[in-house]
Design a protein around this nucleic acid. Structure first.
Length: 481
RNA sequence: GGUCCCAUCGUCUAGUGGUUAGGACACCGGCCUCUCACGUCGGGAACGCGGGUUCGACUCCCGCUGGGAUCACCA
C-alpha cells in the first residue's frame, strides 16, 4: 500500500513553526516511503479564513520545498467544498441510528456544563436526547427550514478504543469516557472533527501525522470511521513545540511564523534542518540536506516529549548554510533585500560579489548581510561618535592625508596588494604600527570600529570613494562640527 | 476535576543493564589577528525524587513530584 500523508492547515493566519513541523514530518514520511503528500485546506471556518493567509501558507510550503502531489489549487482539496459530502455522511449515520438529533439549546448545555464544573464533575453531555425517538426520514438541520437541532454521534457505551500511535505507542481509551459530540451544527454545517476524519478516509490517507494536541480527538475520530464503515488510518502524534518559557509557542514569543524568518533573510535549508532536528534525531548528526532527511526519517527516531524552540540554534544553522553558499548565489539572493531598503547597488554583479565575499563569514542572515554591507552600498555613512572619539584624533590626520595621497597616485584601480604596499609605506614614514593606522582608516571608511580586513574594504570601495572618505575624515578631525 | 501524554547539561538530543554519560547550540578561556568575525584548542554544565528487580541501573517495574494536552453548535 502506498503511503499517503497529509498536511491540513487552516488559512486563518500565518504558517506557524509548530504547525509546519508536523507538516514537514508528514512530508518526510511520505517521501521516505516513496508515497504521496497531500495538502488539504481546512477552511470550514469561513469567518476567519482569508485568501491572503492561504496564499502565504502555500508560498511558505513552496519556499521550504515541501511540494505536494495533490492539493491546491485543485478545488477538491478545500474542505469548504466538501460540505455536501460531510452532510451526506452524517445523514447516513442518522439513517442507521448511529447518530441522533439533539434538541438541547446552546444555553441549556452551557448551563449544565457550568454547573458540572462548579460541582467538579466531568463536563460532558448527559446524552439527554439519545433515547428520544425520531422519524426514520428525519432531515438534517437547516435553520431556514426551521429545523433547529444538532446531530450528535452515538458513541459506543462500552468497550475500548485502541490507538497504536507511531510516536507515542499504544494508548487505550474507555469508550464510556467518550461523549456524544455534535457532528452537525443547528445551521447544518459539519463540525471539524467529523469533516476531518471523513476527508482523511475519503482521500485514502494512510497516516495522519499531526500535533499531539489532537490525541484526545483520535479515539472519537476512529469511532466515526468505524461507524462509517472505514478502517481508520494510522496515527503519528508529534509532541508540541514550546516557547522558551515552556508554554506552547505563540505570537508573544516573538517571531514564530515561517514568513517572519523568510523575511529576516533565513534560508529554507536552515529552517528545514532546524525543524527536523526539533524532536527527531539521527545519532549525533546535526547538518542534514533534504535528501538525507528523507533518507533517514522515521517515527521511531522521534522524541515523545515537547521541545523548546531555540531561535539561536536556527540562527547558527542559517549561518552554517550562509557560509557554505557560493558567493555568486549569495550576491543574487541579497539583491531583493537591498532593493527593499530602497538602496541602489553602486557597481556590477562582479563588484557585488566582491563585497559579499568580504562579509560572508560575518553575517548570519541575508538581512544582516545587507546591514553589514551598508557602507559599501551607500556613500552617506554615519560615523559612530564613540569610534570617532577613540580613533579619529588630530595626530592621525597627517598619516591619513598621506595615505589618501599615495592611493590617489596609484595608476588605475587599487588592489588588495597595492593597498597593502601603500599602507606599509605610510606606516614606515610615520613610524606607526598597522593597528594605529588601520583603526582610524576603518572608522573613516565604514563609520565604525568593526569591519572586514581594511585592505579588502578599500579594494571593494575603490580608489575614488576611499580617497573621498579619507579626506572627509581629515576635515572632520581638523574642524570638528 | 476526569481522561491521556511526557521527564538526560540552560536548550535540542545520543544512549537501549556494565560508558570517564557522547554530540550540537549557547556560555567561559587560550591561540590566530589591523578591528570584529571565521577558524582552532580547551573548560564548566545533565540522568527530578523514592522504592523495588538485578552481581550491577540513566536504561526494566511501581509510586511520588513536576510539566503538558484535552474535555465547545473552534479548527
Amino acid at each position: 500500500m502506498t503511503v499517503r500523508t497529509r498536511f491540513a492547515p487552516s488559512p486563518t493566519g500565518s504558517l506557524h513553526i509548530g504547525n509546519v513541523r508536523s507538516g514537514l514530518f508528514a512530508y518526510l514520511y511520505a517521501r521516505h516511503n516513496h508515497g504521496q503528500f497531500i495538502v488539504r485546506i481546512d477552511d470550514t471556518d469561513r469567518e476567519r479564513s482569508t485568501k491572503q493567509s492561504l496564499d502565504e501558507i502555500l508560498a511558505d510550503l513552496k519556499w521550504l520545498g515541501m511540494e505536494w502531489n495533490e492539493g491546491p489549487p485543485d478545488e477538491a482539496y478545500f474542505q469548504s467544498n466538501r460540505v455536501e459530502r460531510h452532510r451526506e455522511a452524517a445523514l447516513k449515520l442518522l439513517r442507521e441510528r448511529k447518530a441522533y438529533p439533539c434538541y438541547c439549546s446552546a444555553e441549556e448545555l452551557d448551563a449544565k456544563r457550568k454547573q458540572a464544573e462548579r460541582e467538579r464533575r466531568r463536563p460532558v453531555y448527559d446524552r439527554k436526547c439519545r433515547g428520544l425517538d425520531f422519524p426514520s426520514d428525519l432531515a438534517l438541520p437547516e435553520k431556514s427550514a426551521g429545523r433547529n437541532y444538532t446531530i450528535r454521534f452515538a458513541m459506543p457505551l462500552d468497550g475500548e478504543t485502541l490507538v497504536d500511535d507511531l510516536v507515542k505507542g499504544r494508548m487505550v481509551f474507555q469508550n464510556s469516557e467518550l461523549d456524544d459530540f455534535i457532528i452537525v451544527r443547528s445551521d447544518g454545517s459539519p463540525i471539524y472533527n467529523f469533516a476531518s476524519i471523513l476527508d482523511d478516509v475519503d482521500m485514502r490517507i494512510t497516516h495522519i501525522v499531526r500535533g499531539d494536541d489532537h490525541v484526545s480527538n483520535t479515539p472519537r475520530q476512529m469511532q466515526m470511521a468505524y461507524a462509517l464503515g472505514f478502517t481508520p488510518p494510522a496515527f503519528a502524534h508529534l509532541p508540541q513545540v514550546l516557547g522558551p518559557d515552556g508554554s506552547p509557542l505563540s505570537k508573544r514569543h516573538g517571531a514564530t511564523s515561517v514568513i517572519a524568518y523568510r523575511e529576516k533573510g533565513y534560508f529554507p535549508e536552515a529552517m528545514l534542518n532546524y525543524l527536523a532536528r526539533l524532536g527527531w534525531s539521527h545519532g549525533d548528526q546535526e547538518i542534514f540536506s533534504r535528501d538525507e532527511l528523507i533518507g533517514y526519517f522515521g517515527f521511531e527516531a522521534c522524541g515523545k516529549s515537547a521541545g523548546v524552540f531555540n531561535a539561536e540554534k536556527l540562527l547558527w544553522l542559517n549561518f552554517h548554510y550562509l557560509k557554505e553558499r557560493p558567493i555568486p548565489r549569495l550576491a543574487a539572493e541579497i539583491k531583493p533585500f537591498i532593493a527593499r531598503r530602497g538602496w541602489a547597488i553602486p557597481g556590477d554583479d562582479a563588484w557585488l560579489e566582491k563585497a559579499v565575499a568580504t562579509l560572508h563569514e560575518r553575517a548570519k542572515t541575508l538581512v544582516e548581510l545587507v546591514d553589514f554591507a551598508s557602507f559599501y552600498l551607500k556613500d552617506e555613512i554615519e560615523i559612530d561618535s564613540k569610534a570617532a572619539a577613540k580613533f579619529l584624533k588630530p595626530e592621525i590626520a597627517e598619516p591619513i592625508r598621506a595615505l589618501a595621497a599615495e592611493l590617489e597616485s596609484i595608476e588605475g584601480e587599487v588592489s588588495e596588494a597595492s593597498v597593502q604596499a601603500v599602507f606599509e609605506s605610510v606606516l614606515a614614514r610615520f613610524n606607526l604600527k598597522l593597528g594605529q593606522l588601520a583603526q582610524p582608516v576603518r572608522v573613516a571608511l565604514t563609520g565604525g570600529a568593526v569591519s572586514p580586513g581594511i585592505y579588502e574594504v578599500i579594494a571593494v570601495l575603490g580608489k575614488r570613494r576611499t580617497v573621498d572618505r579619507l579626506n572627509a575624515a581629515v576635515s572632520r578631525i581638523e574642524q570638528p562640527a
